[in-house]
Design a binder for these strands. Structure first.
Length: 946
RNA sequence: GGGCUCAUAGCUCAGUUGGUUAGAGCACGCGCUUGAUAAGCGCGGGGUCGAUGGUUCAAGUCCAUCUGGGCCCA
C-alpha cells in the first residue's frame, strides 16, 4: 500500500549521474568536442562579433606541463570562454617557445653521454625534434584540462616563417641604429662558454675566500698626498674573488666617506674609518693608532701598486662604495664587473679581461707565468669537494709570498650561478651585440607606452616601469647553436658588418628555407642576390657570424609573427596578455621593447598577472617539504579531474600567491559535488517539464518562485561583474553560496512538497518548474567558463536529455535576466520571512533534541507578532505560504503588542493539536479523506483524483 | 640589501568612503531524515582581524616600525 502511494508521487528522475567519475569520463567529452569541432563552431558563431584577442605567452617546450602552467592556461581559457559567451570573437592562437639554452644543453648532454659528435646542423635538428616531442605532449596535456584553442594555427618560435619575423624585428633594431658591438662584462657560463641572459642566472650560496689585501703606496706617492712615508703604507682592499686580482686596474673609494691612516706599529693602513674595527678584528691586529683622517676625494688618482704585478693601481672615486662591508676601498677590475666597468669607462681604464672563454687565465704577456692556464672558478667537481678554484689558490699563494695578504677567511654569500650547470659564473668582458635602449629616446617611448596600457592589478605598472627604467643595455648575442642566427658578417680583421637591408634579405631567405641555411651556406650563397651596402667587402672575403639571438627577442616577437599577420583571425595589438607576475621583467618587457621599437607601441592593451603556486604553508612549491611527486598538470588531473582543478583555479584570488594542497583540493571537490548535485536535482525535477509547453509567465508565478528569480538575477549581476573584473574567485564563492544556501537549504528544500505531491500540471508546480528551468539555464551558463566539462554535460541533459548532444553550453550567449525577475518588494519581504524561518528552525531544534519530533513537517508552529509591526504585516501578507516556507504542517498566528520585529515562536508536535499524518505527503492535517489509494489529506485526494 | 606585493576562523574568500556583539561556504561536533540517499535538512562550537606603537570620540579598515611569505632584482 505504501509503495502504491509512493508511486503516485512525482519523484525526481534523471539519467544525469550523481557520481562524476571525472578522471574516467572527461576524456570522452573532450573527444566529443573534437568531433564537434567546438573551437571552430564557437568562432563561426561569433564571426561578426567584436574581437577580443588574448595573445598566448608561449610555454617552453622542454618538459611536461607544470601545474603553474596549467593554472595560466586555464585562466586564459576561462577568460576566452566568458568573452565568447559575451558575444566577442575570441581567436586564441597557442604558441610554443622552442629555442634556447636548456633544450640545447639537454640535447648536448645526451650526445655527450652517448659520445656522439655531430655538426651544428645535426645538433639543431635534434633540438628541433626534442622540442617537437614536447609540443605534442604538452598539447595533449592542455587539451586534457579542457583548454580550447586554434591548434592548427599554433605558432612555434622555431618555424622558418617565425624566424623570419624575428629577424625582421631585429632589422628594425638595426635600422634605428640601436645595435652596437662592445666589449662588456657579461655573465659568462664557463661550462657552456656562453654569455647568459639575466634570466639565466640564479643566485645561490657560495663559499669564497674572503681576503683583505694590501696595495702598497710608494713613499714618493704618499708624500705627494701629504701622507706619512716613514713606515710602509698600504691601501687595504677586500674581495671574495681573488682570481680577479690579476685584472685589477684601480681601487675605488667613496668621495665623501671618511678614511683613516691607521698605524699598527710596523706599518700603516688606509681603510674607511667605519670599517677599521672590522679590519682590525679580521687581521687580528692590536689597537691601531689613527694617524690622520681624510675623505676619499683627497686620495683620487693616488698611484698605489698592484700587490704582485708590476703596475700601478690608481685610486678612483665611485658613489657605489659603501661601508656595509669590506674596507671601503674597492678592488676594481673593469673587465670583471658591471660597476667596475662603468668606473673604468669614466677613468679611461682598459676593459681588461685576462680570462679566456674556458674560464682560464690567458697568456697575454702580462699575466704572471705561474697563473697562466689556471681555472678561475670552481667546476662542479670542485664544488662537490668543497674546494676553491685553482686560480684562487695560486693568487693567495702569490699574495702570501709578497706579504700583501693582510687577512683571510671563508665567506658564504649569494653568488650568481649558471641556472643549468649550477656552477658559479664569471663576469667577463667580451665582444657582444647590444641594443642601446636610450638611443633615439627609446626608453622614454617604452615608458610612454606603459602608460597607455591597463595593468591588472594596478601595481603591475609600477613593477614594469621600474624594470624598464633600470634595465641596462640589452645584450642580445649568444654563443649558441639552437636559436635564430644574428646575420652579421666579419672580415679577416674581425670587423663586423651588419645592415638592416641585408638582415631583411636574409630574413626572407630564412623564412623560406629555415635557419639551417645560415649554418650550412657560404657567405656568397647567403648574400647571393642581395644588394651589398657601400663599404662592404666582397662576400668571398666575409665569414658569417656564429652568434644567435637572445631568445627574449624570439618571445618578444611573438606578436609580430602572429597578430600582425592576423593568424587565426587575430589582430594587433592584443587585448590581453595574461601571465605570471615574473613576466614584468620577462615577456611583457621583451614584447614591449620589440613592439615599441619595431611597431611604434605596446603590443597589448591590458596586461593581467597572476601569482605563483605555493604549498599549504604558503611556501614556494619547489621548496615544499610535502613535495611528493612531480608537480605536473597531469598528476593533478589524474587525481582530481580537470573540472575540479579548474574549479580550484577559480576559487583562488589569483592576483596573490596561490596555495595548493590536498586539503584545499578536497574542499574544492566538495564544492564541485555541490554544483553537480544542484544540477542533478534541478534536472531531475524537470523530468516532465517542457519549457515550450509548460512555462508560466513571470507575472503569473508564485511569490516563492519570483523570489528565487530575483536572487538569480542578483547572482548573475554579481558574477558578470566579477568576470568582467577578472575576479573569478568571486564567481566561485557567489555560486557556492547560492547553491548551498539559496537553493539547497532553502528553495529546493521548500519546493519538494509541491513538486512531488501536487498534480503534474498544478499551476504552482509548473510555476516552480519554470523557475527551476530559468535558474538552471542561468547557473549552468554562469559556471560554463570554469566547470567546462560538467556544465556541458548538464546542458546536454537539460536541453536534449542526452549525455552528448550536438549543441554545447559553450555555444550559448551569456544569460540575461529579464527585467521582470528583479523585484525589490519580494526581496525585502523574503529577507524578513527567511529570518523568521531561521528562528522557527531554532525553536524546533530543542524538541528534536528531546526526541519529541524528527522532521520539521511534524511541527505545528505558533507565531506571535505585533500586527502593526512591519514583520507582523509581512507574516499576515504571506500567511498562506508560511507552512510551506517553514516546511511545517501548521502555522497559527497570534497578534499581541510586541517590541519591533520581535516574533515569539512556540512549537508543538502536530499530533498535540489532534492532527493526523497524511501517508502520502507526510503533512499533518486535521482530518484525512478517503481515496482509491486509501485515506489521504484533502489536497492529496485532489491530486489523485485529477 | 633594494623594488613591488600579501598576511581576517582548520581551508578558501567577503568585509563599501574608519562607526552597532567581524560575515559566508566548506571542514569539524551533535542531531534529524531515508521521497536528491556514496544525497538532503537542522542546530552548534570556532577568528579580535600577523606583531607592536601611533592618529581618532571610534580602526580589521588610516600612519609608522617589525615579523613572516611571494615575485623580481642586487
Amino acid at each position: 500500500m505504501a509503495q502504491d502511494l509512493k508511486d503516485t508521487l512525482l519523484l525526481p528522475r534523471t539519467d544525469f549521474p550523481m557520481r562524476a567519475s571525472l578522471v574516467h569520463r572527461e576524456p570522452a567529452r573532450i573527444a566529443h568536442w573534437g568531433k564537434l569541432g567546438l573551437y571552430d563552431a564557437i568562432q563561426r558563431k561569433r564571426a561578426s562579433g567584436p574581437a577580443f584577442v588574448l595573445h598566448d605567452g608561449p610555454p617552453f617546450t622542454n618538459g611536461d606541463v607544470h601545474i603553474g602552467t596549467a593554472l595560466n592556461k586555464t585562466l586564459k581559457d576561462i577568460t576566452n570562454r566568458f568573452k565568447s559567451m559575451r558575444g566577442f570573437r575570441t581567436p586564441y592562437v597557442p604558441g610554443w617557445d622552442c629555442h634556447g639554452l636548456p633544450i640545447e644543453q639537454k640535447v648536448a648532454r645526451e650526445l655527450q653521454e652517448t659520445k656522439q659528435q655531430v655538426s651544428t646542423a645535426e645538433l639543431r635538428q635534434r633540438c628541433d625534434d626534442f622540442s617537437e616531442s614536447w609540443i605534442a605532449k604538452q598539447t595533449a596535456q592542455f587539451k586534457r584540462l579542457g583548454v580550447l584553442a586554434d591548434w592548427p594555427n599554433q605558432y612555434k618560435t622555431k618555424t622558418p616563417a617565425f624566424e623570419g619575423d624575428v629577424l625582421r624585428t631585429f632589422a628594425a633594431f638595426v635600422e634605428k641604429g640601436l645595435i652596437y658591438r662592445s666589449k662588456k662584462p657579461v655573465y659568462w657560463s664557463i661550462p657552456f662558454e656562453t654569455a647568459l641572459a639575466e634570466a639565466e642566472i640564479e643566485y645561490k650560496d657560495h663559499v669564497s675566500p674572503s681576503i683583505w689585501v694590501k696595495f702598497p703606496v710608494p713613499p714618493a706617492e704618499a708624500g705627494k698626498f701629504g701622507l706619512p712615508s716613514d713606515k710602509p703604507l698600504s691601501i687595504v682592499i677586500w674581495t671574495t674573488t681573488p682570481w680577479t686580482l690579476p685584472a685589477n686596474l684601480a681601487i675605488a673609494l667613496h668621495p665623501e666617506i671618511a678614511y683613516v691612516v691607521a698605524d699598527t706599529g710596523e706599518e700603516r693602513l688606509i681603510v674607511a674609518q667605519a670599517l677599521l674595527e672590522s679590519v682590525r678584528t679580521a687581521a687580528g691586529l692590536a689597537e691601531p693608532a689613527i694617524v690622520t683622517t681624510l675623505t676619499g676625494a683627497r686620495l683620487e688618482k693616488l698611484q698605489a701598486r698592484h700587490p704582485f704585478i708590476d703596475r700601478a693601481s690608481p685610486v678612483v672615486l665611485a658613489d657605489y662604495v659603501t661601508t656595509d662591508s669590506g674596507t671601503g676601498c674597492v678592488h676594481t677590475a673593469p673587465g670583471h664587473g658591471q660597476e667596475d666597468y662603468q668606473t673604468g669607462l669614466k677613468y679611461g681604464l682598459e676593459i681588461y679581461c685576462p680570462v679566456a672563454d674556458d674560464g682560464r687565465f690567458i697568456d697575454d704577456g702580462r699575466m704572471p707565468a705561474d697563473l697562466v692556464g689556471l681555472a678561475t672558478l670552481e667546476t662542479g667537481e670542485d664544488l662537490a669537494k668543497k674546494r676553491t678554484s685553482p686560480a684562487n689558490v695560486a693568487v693567495l699563494k702569490k699574495l702570501a709570498a709578497t706579504g700583501t695578504l693582510l687577512a683571510k677567511q671563508s665567506f658564504t654569500h649569494s653568488y650568481p650561478h649558471c641556472w643549468r650547470s649550477k656552477t658559479p659564473i664569471v663576469f667577463r668582458a667580451v665582444d657582444q651585440w647590444f641594443v642601446s635602449l636610450d638611443k633615439s629616446g627609446m626608453r622614454q617611448n617604452a615608458l610612454d607606452a606603459i602608460g597607455q596600457v591597463r595593468w591588472v592589478p594596478a601595481w603591475g605598472e609600477a613593477r614594469i616601469r621600474g624594470a624598464v627604467e633600470s634595465r641596462p643595455d640589452w645584450c642580445i648575442s649568444r654563443q649558441r647553436a639552437w636559436g635564430v642566427p644574428i646575420p652579421a658578417f666579419y672580415d679577416a680583421q674581425k670587423n663586423a658588418y651588419l645592415d638592416a637591408g641585408v638582415v631583411r634579405a636574409i630574413a626572407d631567405k630564412i623564412a623560406q628555407h629555415g635557419t639551417n641555411l645560415w649554418f650550412n651556406a657560404t657567405p656568397a650563397q647567403l648574400l647571393d642576390g642581395v644588394k651589398l651596402p657601400a663599404g662592404w667587402p666582397a662576400p668571398s672575403e666575409l665569414v658569417a657570424g656564429r652568434d644567435t639571438l637572445d631568445v627574449w627577442i624570439d618571445s618578444g616577437s611573438t606578436h609580430a609573427a602572429t597578430l600582425r599577420h592576423g593568424v587565426g583571425g587575430t589582430r594587433w595589438p592584443a587585448d590581453l596578455y595574461l601571465e605570471g607576475s615574473d613576466q614584468h621583467r620577462g615577456w611583457f618587457q621583451s614584447s614591449l621593447w620589440c613592439g615599441v621599437i619595431a611597431h611604434g607601441g605596446a603590443p597589448y592593451r591590458t596586461v593581467l598577472t597572476h601569482g605563483f603556486i605555493v604549498d599549504e604553508d604558503r611556501r614556494k612549491i619547489s621548496k615544499s617539504s610535502t613535495y611528493e611527486k612531480p608537480q605536473t598538470s597531469d598528476a593533478y588531473v589524474a587525481d582530481y579531474g580537470a573540472d575540479v582543478i579548474r574549479l580550484w583555479i577559480s576559487s583562488q584570488d589569483f592576483r596573490d600567491d596561490i596555495p595548493i594542497s590536498k586539503e584545499i583540493l578536497s574542499h574544492v571537490g566538495e564544492t564541485y559535488r555541490l554544483f553537480r548535485n544542484t544540477f542533478r536535482f534541478q534536472l531531475s525535477t524537470l523530468f516532465d517539464f517542457d519549457p515550450a509547453v509548460h512555462s508560466v509567465p513571470v507575472a503569473a508565478m508564485d511569490r516563492l518562485d519570483r523570489w528565487v528569480l530575483h536572487e538569480t538575477s542578483e547572482l548573475l549581476r554579481q558574477c558578470t561583474d566579477a568576470y568582467e573584473n577578472y575576479e573569478y574567485h568571486r564567481v566561485y564563492h557567489l555560486c557556492n553560496q547560492f547553491c548551498s544556501v539559496t537553493l539547497s537549504a532553502t528553495y529546493h528544500d521548500i519546493l519538494k512538497d509541491r513538486l512531488y505531491t501536487l498534480e503534474a500540471s498544478h499551476p504552482r508546480r509548473r510555476s516552480s518548474q519554470t523557475a527551476i528551468h530559468h535558474v538552471f539555464t542561468t547557473l549552468v551558463r554562469i559556471l560554463a567558463p570554469i566547470v567546462t566539462l560538467t556544465t556541458d554535460e548538464a546542458w546536454s541533459y537539460g536541453t536534449a536529455r542526452l549525455e552528448y548532444s550536438m549543441d554545447s553550453v559553450h555555444l550559448q550567449d551569456w544569460p540575461v535576466a529579464p527585467a521582470g525577475w528583479t523585484n525589490a518588494e519580494i526581496e525585502d519581504d523574503f529577507t524578513a520571512l527567511l529570518k523568521v524561518r531561521a528562528a522557527v528552525n531554532e525553536a524546533i531544534e530543542p524538541l528534536r533534541a528531546a526526541g519529541r519530533l524528527g522532521k520539521s513537517l511534524d511541527a505545528a508552529v505558533t507565531l506571535t507578532a505585533d500586527p502593526t509591526d512591519p514583520v507582523g504585516r509581512i507574516l499576515e501578507k504571506y500567511a498562506d505560504l508560511l507552512p510551506e516556507l517553514f516546511i511545517v504542517s501548521h502555522v497559527s498566528r497570534k497578534t499581541e503588542a510586541k517590541a519591533p520585529a520581535e516574533v515569539r515562536i512556540s512549537v508543538n508536535h502536530a499530533n498535540e493539536l489532534g492532527y493526523v499524518r497524511c501517508p502520502r505527503c507526510w503533512r499533518w492535517v486535521p482530518a484525512l479523506a478517503s481515496s482509491p489509494h486509501g485515506d489521504v489529506c484533502p489536497r492529496c485526494r485532489e491530486a489523485l483524483n485529477s
